[in-house]
Amino acid sequence: MDLRIEKLQRRAASHPGVISLAGCLPADELLPRLELVRAMEQVLESSAWSDCLDHIRVWVADRLNARGAQIDPADVIITTGARQSLAIAARALRPIGRVAVGELTSPAAIGAFTAAGHEVVPADEDAPQFVMEGVSTPEGRDLVTPRRAELLGSGAAIIVDDGMSDLRFDGAVRRPLVADAPDRVWHVGTFAKLLCNGLGVGWLVPPRHAMRDALALAHKDELREVGLVPAALARILGECAHPDRIARARASYAMRAEAVIAAIHHHLPGWQVREPEGGLAVWAESDLEGDDVAVVTAAIKQGVAIDPGCVFRPDGQGTPLGFRISFAHARLTDLEEGIRRLSRAARKFRRCDPDN
Rank of each mutant, 00 (worst) to 15 (best):
L215N: 07
L215P: 01
S326C: 05
Q70M: 13
N197R: 13
P243M: 06
G279R: 06
S14D: 14
A192W: 08
Q70R: 12
G290C: 02
A305T: 02
A39G: 07
V293Y: 07
R224S: 06
A82D: 13
F169P: 02
G81Y: 10
G303K: 04
V293A: 15
H219I: 05
L86Y: 08
P107L: 09
V58T: 10
L36S: 08
V205F: 12
R63G: 08
R347W: 10
H118N: 02
W49M: 13
D62I: 02
A115D: 14
G279Y: 04
E125D: 15
A149F: 09
V296P: 01
W283E: 00
D72C: 14
D353Y: 08
R141M: 14
A181P: 03
E41C: 11
G134V: 07
R248L: 11
D2A: 09
A87V: 02
P26G: 06
A247M: 09
P308F: 03
V76W: 08
R340I: 08
D162G: 03
C240F: 10
L34H: 11
R91L: 11
E150Q: 13
P243D: 07
G189C: 04
D62G: 06
P146K: 05
V201H: 06
A294M: 09
A232M: 06
G318E: 04
V160L: 11
F349L: 00
I306Y: 07
E41T: 09
A156G: 05
P16F: 06
R324H: 03
R212Y: 12
I339F: 00
A127P: 05
D54N: 13
C352R: 14
T79E: 08
R168W: 09
D292T: 01
L86T: 02
C52A: 15
L34W: 13
G111K: 08
L332A: 12
Y253G: 01
V121Q: 10
F323V: 00
A346R: 02
Q129M: 10
E222V: 14
R208C: 07
S136W: 08
N65Q: 04
E336L: 01
L280W: 09
Q70F: 10
G81R: 03
G163E: 13
V131S: 02
A234E: 05
I71K: 06
D51L: 14
Q9T: 07
L268N: 03
P314C: 04
T80V: 11
A284H: 03
S50L: 14
A231C: 08
P26M: 03
R33F: 15
H15Y: 11
V229L: 14
